[in-house]
């Protein structure tokens, strides 16, 4: 009887409505609680360790040392330059992906997101092979203009653009997709060209998305290590950015220096999260 009555029910009819939020029963089974605590510890413990080990009294001295100041300045200059480059080419790329129906758009979108999952070192190898003196582009550059890109500050920026641009493109494309295209239609009926419409209507409409993308892009560029060290090397003053300086310091046994630089990076990371909290973690 019971089985028969159950089988007549439509499959997806649950007795309770779907809802969001916390269950009334707050007890958490240990099989879930223990791994959750371990997971949290794996994330938080290293940062706590850093704070505990930090040479707080010597911190001002270390942070104002020539090595750190030079690396910090280089990092800020290169990450900012990389972000400007990403904005200049990434926003039009995102527009193309979101607002046109060019053939092969899906493939292009896939290619744009590859650096998100590619190990940065591989990106550095790719850049080196392409833009090095014996590379396809690099060889021509060297022969025609006598320009050599690897192991220069320009190479640092290129490495950062390579790894950080996908963040900007993905954020801006998402904003463009959700933006109401009827505003563009109205602008067209008022006589605006596509460029005027983009500049005065579309872009201001997606400004929050562009800002969020740019902040993420800048943070990613600032933390870039693998592609930079492969393609640009680690020369103080020209290519040794903060993450490289931290790596060099720890290799040379200067734990205090490495910790100090790490603290800067953590402060930056947390600041980015706070800046973007309304967009990313505000729902928590």
């Amino acid at each position: 009887m019971r089985r028969a009555s159950q089988s007549t029910k439509p499959r997806n009819t649950l007795p309770l409505p779907r809802r969001a939020g916390r269950p009334a029963d707050m007890r958490v089974p240990p099989v879930l609680l223990l791994p959750a605590i371990v997971g949290l510890a794996l994330l938080v413990l290293p940062m706590a360790g850093l704070a505990l080990q930090a040479p707080w009294s010597r911190l001002p001295e270390i942070l104002t040392s020539p090595e750190v100041v030079t690396a910090l300045r280089l990092s800020i200059v290169t990450a900012t330059t990389a972000t400007v480059v990403c904005l200049a080419v990434g926003v039009p790329l995102a527009w193309l992906l979101a607002r046109t129906s060019l053939p092969g758009r899906a493939v292009v979108r896939g290619l744009v997101t590859v650096p998100l999952v590619l190990p940065p070192v591989i990106g550095g190898v790719a850049l080196l092979v392409t833009f090095g003196r014996n590379g396809v582009v690099g060889g021509w550059l060297h022969a025609a203009f006598g320009v050599s890109l690897p192991f220069t500050t320009v190479a640092v920026v290129m490495a950062q653009v390579f790894v950080a641009m996908p963040f900007l493109v993905v954020a801006v494309e998402g904003a463009l997709r959700t933006a109401d295209t009827r505003y563009d239609d109205v602008a067209a009926t008022l006589g605006a060209s596509r460029w005027t419409t983009f500049r005065r209507v579309t872009l201001p409409g997606v400004a929050p998305g562009v800002v969020a993308g740019a902040v993420l892009c800048w943070a990613r560029a600032l933390g870039e290590f693998g592609a930079t060290v492969t393609f640009a090397g680690s020369f103080p003053g020209t290519t040794r950015t903060l993450p490289l300086a931290a790596y060099v310091a720890i290799g040379a046994g200067d734990t205090d220096g490495a910790i100090a630089i790490s603290l800067i990076m953590i402060v930056v990371a947390v600041s980015v999260l706070v800046l973007l909290r309304d967009r990313w973690v505000g729902q928590a």
């Binding site: 009926t189 008022l190 005065r200």
Partner: peptide, 16 residues
């Protein structure tokens, strides 16, 4: 549209 000189007012107005 931009050369047609036809004014359009939509239901939700879509003011910039």
């Amino acid at each position: 549209a931009r050369d047609r000189h036809a004014g359009l007012v939509l239901q939700d107005y879509l003011l910039f």
